[in-house]
């Protein structure tokens, strides 16, 4: 897995390509999209958007970014801007579709609606892990799903964008990962890496 070992984080690589795009190298936008789409997809899905809505929300976030390109100053700001835009858009649509306003969306958000067929395709370890992830608070569930697709240096800004207190994950394990790790290590059915 190269995701955790690249010399430059996802946000930095995406930021570099985005700067080139803004300076007139329009072809570089494709690279920005390919680098960050997996995180945006995960953000939308972990916010309770169904697969169709999630795909649409991600597209709208990119269209809005291009329109507001001059407001996004640096690589971490680019990633944060996109994450916040996806999150808000999901929130807006979920509340519209529910015709009610939840008091605190984050804590009401259901785990992604994985079908039994999809769950059956997971390995035993993956299933055990998913069960424990589903048992976490909605904020932790979201954060862990997104950082699983990110690089370590980006955790802090992802965490901030998703509404976790800054510094609660950062370069250290963080509250959410610590909770998941503790649950897994005390579960005999988890084949812990030695």
């Amino acid at each position: 897995m190269t995701a955790h070992t690249s010399p430059d984080s996802l946000a930095v690589r995406a930021g570099r390509a985005f700067r080139a795009y803004r300076d007139g190298d329009v072809g570089r936008m494709a690279e920005v999209v390919e680098l960050l789409d997996p995180l945006l997809w995960r953000t939308a899905r972990s916010q309770g958007a169904d697969r169709e809505t999630a795909a649409d929300v991600v597209q709208v976030a990119w269209l809005k970014l291009v329109e507001h390109a001059d407001r996004v100053a640096d690589p971490q700001a680019l990633l944060q801007w996109l994450l916040v835009t996806v999150k808000r858009e999901c929130w807006r649509r979920t509340t519209r579709d529910r015709r009610e306003i939840p008091s605190e969306l984050d804590e009401d958000t259901p785990a992604p609606d994985l079908s039994p067929e999809r769950l059956a395709e997971m390995s035993d370890d993956q299933r055990v892990l998913w069960r424990h992830v589903s048992g976490l608070s909605a904020r932790c569930r979201t954060l862990l799903q997104v950082i699983a697709f990110a690089d370590r240096p980006d955790y802090a800004s992802i965490s901030a964008a998703l509404g976790m207190p800054v510094g609660s994950i950062g370069p250290t394990r963080g509250r959410c990962l610590a909770a998941l790790r503790k649950a897994l290590l005390s579960d005999a059915s988890w084949g812990a890496p030695s």
Binding site: M1, A3, H4, R42, R45, R51, P112, L114, R118, L119, E121, M122, S123, D125, Q126, R127, L129, W130, V133, L144, Q145, I147, A148, F149, R152, S168, P171, T172, R173, G174, R175, L177, A178, A179, L180, R181, K182, L184, L185, A192, P193
Partner: peptide
């Protein structure tokens, strides 16, 4: 001290498993 600790190989394995689980399931 648990959540203030630096990430170790167990954390990396957990995140990698979560990522591969989601790549399969969603």
């Amino acid at each position: 001290s648990s959540f203030g600790a630096p990430l170790d190989h167990v954390d990396v394995a957990i995140l990698d498993t979560l990522r591969s689980a989601l790549e399969v399931a969603d």
